[in-house]
């Protein structure tokens, strides 16, 4: 089974600073691979370990996709090769633009059976790219996938819904977005990290793939929520009186 795993390089959220005017500063933020994308990578690597085949990591974006540390980071987690589309127009792209660029990149990725995405990007978390990519490619598409079992020309997947687990057989090729609890991602070992530098990585540009023109979404502002002043009222204990006091305080505030 040939698997493409989509990932996004994002700023590390712990380094993002909220400025006094509620805007965000990314100046001190290091790059990292989207947390949820790592679950997709792990799912792909596990499928190949079980059923054979190859995993290729796939990303689109601005200059960050050519970062050697990011290339090493993704390849140390199991994919055999990396394919990236780099263009300034893809830096900070919206979901539709990203999905279109990925669909264009997939055409350069050779034969594939399955495309895996995370449940959402670590920065925007629109949860849109996987489903839009499947639609653009015209193949069966599912999100919320919490288990994948390889079969013959198909995979059996589970989707954990509110009060039931749905089991579906999906014909390949297909695009699946996996949940964050589908697996526990592995920590790369020394040898995997050292080996990652030797794996092939291809960077394509606007001359190689047909990139989407324009954007579907225009971002007019990006602000952190205003900090609410907390009342700092503490009610300690679990007696009925205390619970009543707690409820009274909430009711008063809501009125």
């Amino acid at each position: 089974m040939n698997i493409l795993v989509c990932y996004k390089i994002v700023p590390d959220e712990q380094d993002i600073v909220v400025k006094p005017d509620q805007t965000l500063s990314f100046d001190r933020a290091e790059l990292k691979i989207g947390q949820y994308d790592l679950n997709a990578v792990e799912a792909g690597v596990q499928l190949v370990e079980a059923a054979g085949g190859a995993v290729t990591a796939l990303t689109v974006g601005g200059a960050e996709v050519d970062n050697s540390k990011m290339k090493k980071s993704i390849l140390s987690r199991g994919p055999g090769s990396n394919l990236a589309v780099k263009d300034d127009s893809l830096a900070g792209a919206d979901s539709a633009t990203t999905a279109k660029a990925l669909a264009a990149a997939v055409k350069k990725a050779g034969e594939w059976d399955l495309i895996l995405c995370g449940e959402g990007s670590s920065d925007l978390y629109s949860q849109q790219v996987g489903v839009q990519l499947g639609e653009l490619l015209g193949v069966p598409t599912l999100n919320g996938v919490s288990a994948i079992t390889p079969g013959d020309g198909c995979v059996t997947v589970e989707r954990t819904l509110e009060d039931e687990v749905e089991t579906l057989e999906v014909r390949l090729p297909a695009v699946l977005s996996v949940t964050a609890d589908i697996n526990v991602t592995r920590v790369p070992s020394m040898k995997e990290i050292l080996g990652a530098g030797k794996k092939p990585s291809t960077i394509l540009g606007s001359g190689d793939v047909e990139l989407p023109a324009g954007r579907a979404v225009e971002t007019t502002s990006l602000l952190a929520p205003a900090q609410a002043q907390r009342k700092c009222v503490l009610v300690e204990g679990d007696s009925d009186d205390k619970i009543a006091e707690f409820c009274r305080a909430i009711r008063t505030e809501l009125q």
Partner: peptide, 14 residues
């Protein structure tokens, strides 16, 4: 980064 450019191999997070 300077050392890596000079040929040192780094394994971080281990």
């Amino acid at each position: 980064d300077e050392a890596e450019a000079a040929g040192v191999m780094f394994v971080c997070g281990v």
